[in-house]
Simulated scan of single mutants.
Amino acid sequence: MNPKHAAAGATILWGFTYVLTSTMLPPNPMFIAAMRALGGGLLLLLLVRDLPPAGWWGRLIVLGTLNSGFFFGLLFIAALRLPGGVAATFQALGPLFMVLLAWPLLGAIPATRKVGAVLVGAVGVSLVVLRGGAAIDLVGVLAALGSALSVALGALLSHKWGRPRSLLGFTAWQLIVAGVELSAVALLVGDLPATLNGTNLLGLLILALFLTALAFVLWFQSIEAGGPAAAAPFLLLTPVTAFVVDIIFRGLVPGAVQLAGVALVIGSLLYSQHVDRKAFRPAHHHAKP
């Protein structure tokens, strides 16, 4: 699959997480995060039945923690403590973190036009989702920034280190690592639902299968084939997708400012594909431990 199509597919799928969480899942964020990671990882492992080389376990723990563990946990903390628009605006800085951190981690100096395109996209996200008078909570802000930084670091290290064997196995074990970590946190803080009904179970299945297992396979495929520079701007599609889903399923009527924000995001994505194309070298398909 074309790496840009894979990145777009992954980030669009992630945009459905918000409506699924609010309509089909129990109000237990750490439990949801744990089931999302553990369920997605186990489903993939059933397909591939792959064990990584012994020398890769340290890297898988680091990557699983960054790409899913910290990312999911901090994301839900931000969602609890901040209005959704504020959280999404801070998380829209993730593509900028990814482009800038590529300099010290990969030795890739970002083109000024590339940074500018990502910044324009972040402004577009803020116009789409931010509301006037939104409350600012310092812990929530730090959590939102931390989740964005975590997924940026995880993507860059995934590109730098490559993968040991199959892409499905590589994705599965990262999710399982995160699932174990998040399960421990959920048990520690007692964030467990009293009961689960049929709707909750269906929602967890959709979350694990489509919005986690499938989405992360597409995300890692895009990074491996095209590099972080090509994948990073597509993270801006997640809040925009959530906004469009609200229009379709919740009857939200967009204003002129929000429509202008969507146009800025799409424009920044189109422009970013024409600049800085060779800032990153392609990842090796099978890295040695």
Rank of each mutant, 00 (worst) to 15 (best):
G190E: 04
A194L: 12
L157P: 03
A10Q: 06
L63W: 03
S150P: 06
A225P: 01
I109A: 14
I109S: 12
R36I: 12
P3W: 04
K288P: 00
V62P: 04
H159K: 15
G40N: 08
N197H: 11
L13R: 00
A92N: 09
V86I: 13
D50H: 10
S272V: 07
P254I: 10
V189D: 01
A213M: 10
I223E: 00
T212S: 07
G40A: 06
F97V: 01
M1S: 13
I109V: 15
V62F: 00
G40L: 02
A111V: 03
T89G: 09
Q91S: 11
L101Q: 12
L96E: 04
A231H: 11
V120D: 11
V262A: 08
V177Y: 09
L25Q: 05
L235T: 11
A260E: 05
G73R: 07
T238A: 13
G58N: 13
Q258G: 03
H284R: 10
V185E: 00
L153P: 05
F249S: 01
L47A: 12
T241S: 04
L80Y: 08
L187V: 09
G146H: 12
G255E: 08
P254Y: 09
S183R: 02
L43M: 15
K288D: 11
V265N: 07
I266Y: 00
T17D: 00
L66D: 12
F220T: 02
T171I: 11
V19R: 03
S166D: 08
V48S: 14
F170L: 10
L47G: 10
Q174K: 13
M1C: 10
A78H: 10
R163Y: 05
V48W: 04
G140I: 02
A225W: 02
F72D: 02
L204T: 06
A230V: 15
A260L: 15
G40M: 09
Y271C: 01
L157F: 15
R49A: 13
A134H: 07
L211Q: 07
G69Y: 09
L46Y: 02
N28Y: 12
A117R: 02
L74H: 11
P254S: 03
T195H: 13
P83C: 05
G84L: 10
F31C: 03
L51G: 01
G64Y: 12
